[in-house]
Write a protein that binds this DNA or RNA. Structure first.
Lengths: 187, 187
DNA sequence: CCCCACATTTGATTCAAATCAAATAATTAG
DNA sequence: CTAATTATTTGATTTGAATCAAATGTGGGG
């Protein structure tokens, strides 16, 4: 449980009673390699914090699987729109490798936001960080060549490289597998 | 001032003392048509809430001006990375038409976050909404044809259409002016 | 009110990456 | 350990939008 509280403490101060409430509400899961955590067409009920391992979010577009993101240690993963708005969506989440993750339900999260200023701050800071990350990704997708996309990925997410098939990285970067292969070959 | 408090109240409850502090710290600006509010290579010191009019954020890429976003009534505008991290960046912000906007400095914002749970909640909710909006934009840029991009823009931002030159919309959508023109001609 | 800078359209051509196709390499489940 | 599946590379071709080029339209400052 130290991991969980450490994660929160790294972002903002956590008073003792918030710690208690967090520990009371959080669930710890173990997901097998390739286990599907969240299925398409369902409401995503929980948000996950990866303790160890690697999660992936993806969806089916014209019979191709498009990877939309990864979450490794200390990163949060949920199908954001489905989770926040409590509506089904097309995203699935699965474990790429054996993964341990904590999770919170929307109700518990809301309870904690409601009762703890620090939790609200935590939420604001995490959302801000996600927003900034997503901006960078948007700019990368809009304005860079396949080669630059791959290089940026290598620089930013080298800890993911080698843990996932290249096809997943290609679709995450918004290019085809073939193009990624050629980029890597250096032509 | 009613506008400002209404904007906050629409998102979360605002206790009387927070109202006081908000009113004490907020500035009201009037920007002329085409007036530049934020210059490139500078730290963006404030975040703006548009009361009336239209702001635009853009940057120079290879001698082309790329529009990155708009903010109309009840929308926030800032150069997010620069503002949050207190570093200069390449974005500029200008008024497209005569605009009235409230603004807050980072220090004031932090003060309000620090002292008011409700302000923190407001920040969290606004960041979440921005995140979701940005996700939709990312998907639009990644997966849709120029025609679909334009249709989506018309559906979502029709109140902007007609108030800005088409070139700005084209670069916002990630297509060229020529392509947008052809899409509109319907071919 | 008119002219000029800017905005928009239209046409011809180019090009980068997608698609289509298939061979080769590497995992993994039995 | 080996067959079968999955991943990766490599090659040929297509294609949609960018680029290049230029004509036409238009609105707002003088």
């Amino acid at each position: 449980m130290d991991f969980l509280l450490q994660h929160f403490s790294d972002i903002t101060s956590v008073p003792e009673n918030l710690k208690q409430e967090l520990l009371k509400r959080v669930q710890l899961h173990t997901f097998k390699r390739n286990e599907v955590i969240q299925r398409a067409d369902r409401v995503c009920k929980r948000t996950y914090l990866v303790k160890q391992g690697l999660l992936r979010i993806y969806f089916n577009k014209d019979d191709k699987i498009i990877t939309d993101g990864f979450a490794a240690e200390n990163e949060w993963m949920t199908s954001a729109y489905s989770f926040m708005r409590v509506v089904p969506d097309q995203y699935e989440i699965a474990a790429i490798e054996l993964t341990q993750a904590y999770s919170l339900s929307l109700e518990d999260l809301m309870y904690l936001f409601e009762h703890f200023h620090e939790m609200e701050r935590f939420g604001r800071i995490v959302m801000s960080m996600q927003f900034i990350k997503q901006s960078e990704r948007l700019n990368s997708i809009r304005f860079t060549t396949p080669k630059e996309k791959y290089e940026h990925f290598c620089n930013t997410y080298k800890y993911i490289l080698g843990r996932v098939p290249l096809g997943m990285i290609a679709s995450y970067l918004g290019i085809t597998q073939e193009t990624l292969s050629r980029v890597r070959a250096g032509s």
